[in-house]
């Protein structure tokens, strides 16, 4: 086991910040390359005329998922040391629903708004101001929603643990679902592109 490198102390906090910039640069680069710095392209997902969001997101998910699986399978990466956001069922369901509404209204998500900003999209600047305002409102209202925020906790919940199924089998199932999804969205896109 030699990864994760940072957790194993291969380098310090200073170097980790340099790595942060580099990872961020590649992250922003690929987002822009795929066209996700453009709000009208992003929301195509919700009107079926451009399914780039689904295609890119699920390709990225299965790429990283397969990488995680094989690297841990061969003992290179200790998965138990990779940070997992704890699951809180209801806040994450409600948060997702609210986020989705905001997403189709604003046209960009937090990461893509940064890419839109530095490629000259003025709407993204307004959206970022809105986002900062939203985070502030959330912080202000936190005492009121505190109980809900910590409700239905499940700790570090992954599907292999939850379903008591083998990691490899679930990885395989997700890949199959993604491929079926890709075939489906290609058809949908063709059907709606002419409209």
């Amino acid at each position: 086991m030699s990864a994760p490198f940072f957790i194993h102390g291969f380098f310090g906090d200073g170097t980790s910040l340099l790595i942060a910039v580099i990872i961020g640069i590649f992250f922003g680069f690929f987002l822009e390359r795929g066209g996700l710095g453009n709000a009208t392209k992003l929301v195509g997902q919700f009107y079926f005329y451009d399914m780039t969001v689904f295609k890119m997101m699920f390709t990225a998910i299965i790429t990283a998922m397969l990488g995680l699986f094989w690297l841990s399978y061969f003992g290179f990466l200790d998965l138990s040391l990779v940070y997992l956001i704890p699951t809180y069922i209801l806040p994450q369901i409600v948060g997702g629903f609210i986020f989705g509404i905001g997403f189709v209204m604003g046209g960009l998500c937090p990461g893509t708004s940064c890419v839109a900003l530095t490629t000259g999209r003025i709407d993204s600047f307004i959206l970022i101001l809105g986002m900062i305002f939203g985070v502030f409102v959330f912080g202000e209202a936190f005492p009121l929603i505190r109980n809900f925020y910590y409700s239905t906790p499940m700790g570090n919940a992954t599907f292999p643990r939850l379903l008591n199924a083998s990691y490899g089998t679930l990885v395989f199932v997700v890949v199959i679902i993604a491929i079926v999804g890709f075939v489906g969205v290609e058809k949908i896109e063709k059907k709606f592109a002419n409209k």
Binding site: F97, I98, G106, I128, G130, M131, F133, V137, F138
Partner: peptide, 17 residues
Amino acid sequence: YAFIGGAIMGIGAKLAR
């Protein structure tokens, strides 16, 4: 829309962690 959408998204993201 961008401002309101951004604000709603900010709240949703904080709620969902």
